[in-house]
């Protein structure tokens, strides 16, 4: 109990050292002195080095930070709204929905920003999953997960259909992007995702206490003065917004949203006034670290989705095994 305060500090500061580490290592190692010099103008650092840092490595790290934050926040929000610690955007089909939206946009609506279509489809997926899982006023844990699998499968099939229909040039770009990677990051990509993720994060940050009420279930939330339908809509909207922006720039990266909020709750307790901000920072730190591994562990590039899954799947099994005795039951 006493250690909670310490964890709050550690988790809030976690992104800083990871950020520096991520800048430091890579195919072209950069020493800390060089880093410092590159960031201060007129210090005589070779242009090439400065370009590597400012145009290649920095935007990629910033994008990892944004996407990690978005996925983790969306996970924390969905877990509270659905009273179910075992879900995230990936499991509930929001990611697949957003991917479908992106594919549709790339294939048929080249003039539109991809995020609009991705957002609409992510929201549609969320509502489908919720609608399928809901029996009267309850949303049972297992049916929610099953509904998520069904909705995910549906949208994944639709993405395949689009892949089948589009011309080979577009097909290549869809396939590459779907793998879940941050290797295409540049400042342009960062700026495409930033406003959406920032808007969603701000909305959640400001209303985070209300997630505690919503997580009590419909009837009790109502008795606490919550307009349940409207507020659930608000939170799903914010989650879908962030997931859509994340998927549109980095493809489907699973498990971050499931794992990070869980870890945060284990360390500092379930109060969403703390869970939301700390999921944000830990999510950012985790994805920056995973992406650093993805681009340094082997000679080439591993899609970062592989790293998050390799961490996430065993974690999920651990949660299942531990379930019932701790914070939740299946």
């Amino acid at each position: 109990m006493k250690s909670r305060g310490l964890w709050v500090w550690l988790l809030s500061l976690a992104p800083a050292p990871v950020f520096v580490l991520a800048l430091h290592v890579g195919a072209y190692p950069i020493s800390l002195t060089e880093l410092w010099q590159a960031l201060t103008p007129g210090s005589g650092v070779p242009e090439q080095l400065r370009a590597v840092i400012l145009q290649v490595r920095l935007p990629r790290i910033v994008l990892a930070l944004l996407v990690g934050m978005a996925l983790s926040l969306a996970g924390a929000t969905l877990q509270a709204v659905f009273r179910n610690p075992l879900v995230d955007a990936y499991i509930l089909g929001l990611s697949a929905g957003a991917a479908f939206g992106c594919a549709v946009s790339v294939a048929f609506l080249p003039a539109w920003p991809v995020q609009i279509c991705a957002f609409a489809c992510a929201l549609l997926a969320a509502m489908l999953t919720f609608g399928l899982a809901r029996t009267r006023a309850e949303v049972p844990t297992l049916s929610l997960i099953l509904a998520g699998i069904v909705v995910s499968a549906l949208f994944t099939a639709l993405v395949s259909l689009i892949k089948f229909l589009v011309d080979p040039h577009k097909l290549a770009s869809i396939v590459f992007w779907l793998m879940g990677s941050l290797s295409l990051a540049d400042w342009h990509t960062v700026m495409k995702a930033l406003p959406w993720i920032a808007a969603g994060a701000l909305a959640l940050w400001l209303s985070r206490w209300r997630l505690n009420a919503l997580s009590m279930g419909d009837q009790e939330a109502k008795s606490l003065g919550v307009e349940v339908g409207r507020e659930r809509g608000f939170f799903l909207l914010a989650a879908a917004l962030m997931v859509a922006a994340a998927v549109s720039v980095s493809g489907i990266i699973g498990w971050v949203g499931l794992m990070i909020p869980h870890l945060v709750r284990m360390l500092v307790g379930p109060d969403h006034r703390r869970v939301i901000p700390l999921s944000m920072t830990l999510g950012a730190a985790f994805l920056m670290l995973s992406d650093t591994l993805a681009r340094t562990v082997t000679g080439g590039e591993i899609p970062v989705g592989i790293i998050t899954t390799v961490c996430g799947a065993p974690f999920f099994i651990y949660l299942l095994k531990r379930g019932g005795q701790e914070s939740w039951k299946l």
């Binding site: 610690p85 505690n212 008795s223 379930p270 109060d271 914070s327």
Partner: peptide, 29 residues
């Protein structure tokens, strides 16, 4: 309520604090 099914193990203090919700604005802490 007659039945209460907890999902998240909030502290007793935080549970009681939740009763302040209808007295505060939407974005208030």
């Amino acid at each position: 309520p007659q039945e209460h099914h907890p999902v998240f193990p909030y502290l007793v203090r935080d549970l009681v604090l939740l009763g302040r919700l209808p007295r505060l604005g939407f974005f208030a802490q």
